[in-house]
Amino acid sequence: MTTLSEAPVPTGEKILELKDVSKSFGSVIALRDISLHVEAGSVTCVLGDNGAGKSTLIKTLSGVHEPSTGTYEVLRKPVRLSSPRDALALGIATVYQDLATVPLMSVWRNFFLGSEPTTGFGPLRRLDVKKAKQIARDELLRMGIDIRDVDQPVGTLSGGERQAVAIARAVYFGAKVLILDEPTSALGVKQSGVVLKYIVQAKERGVAVIFITHNPHHAYLVGDRFFLLNRGRMMENWTRDEVDLDSLVKAMAGGAELEALAHELESLGGAAASAAEEVADVVSHPTRGEDTR
């Protein structure tokens, strides 16, 4: 298999691609003919509402599910991933929203969990604690996060910092593709800003970031390419130049469907008509809408 961690992939190179991938579970078709590609040193946003198929897409990308049909290519060569370990070995790392770190363990122990540096040999092989702490501190600093004490439990960090630790860890261990599952959805405004900053920093270090979210504002801040997922299908594929925030928000809010509905209601007249006008107004000026999450 091709290993991404062997040589640096030049920025802009197509690093990972799904071609007409479908995934069905029994009679349920979760993904249908998904085509998607990711370039090194860029942030690819996958937007979708609940039930759009985001989780299935993440699990397919990270090796949990194999596609039912279609091909999964890494550096233009088809691969078959049968477990997350396979994906990791290829340099594809996934940071799950709540399942990334162990809260009771210290920052440095979390940082090296599963790939601990050791010293000595035979029965005396032990953790290289000094080195581990040093690297954890340095790597977090490189991501712009200043952890004063890497001995403190991760549970004492804020949600954004926890995500940052998980991201820094993935980047340090040679991830060339970083899949982030709703990293900002549980966070407040400031903490989301912290995480978005790390996304940009990972990108600037040449990592291809796949940012899965239902928040068009967050996506628009950092994204280079936007895929819109709805009911298991890829609805849109925009580059940054082709789209503005309004259309992203509108697309996410189900704008077209809402507008059609508003027109229908207007033709009925009466109270429904005035409500429909309001809806149409909100849809066309999404920044005034409250619930953009």
């Binding site: 399942l99 162990v102 809260p103 009771l104 090296f112 969990l113 599963g114």
Partner: peptide, 19 residues
Amino acid sequence: GNWIFAVGGDANAARNSGV
């Protein structure tokens, strides 16, 4: 030892980290 703390603290996170 690191793995012991991890599997008890959060088995899912541990598995995701390759433990």
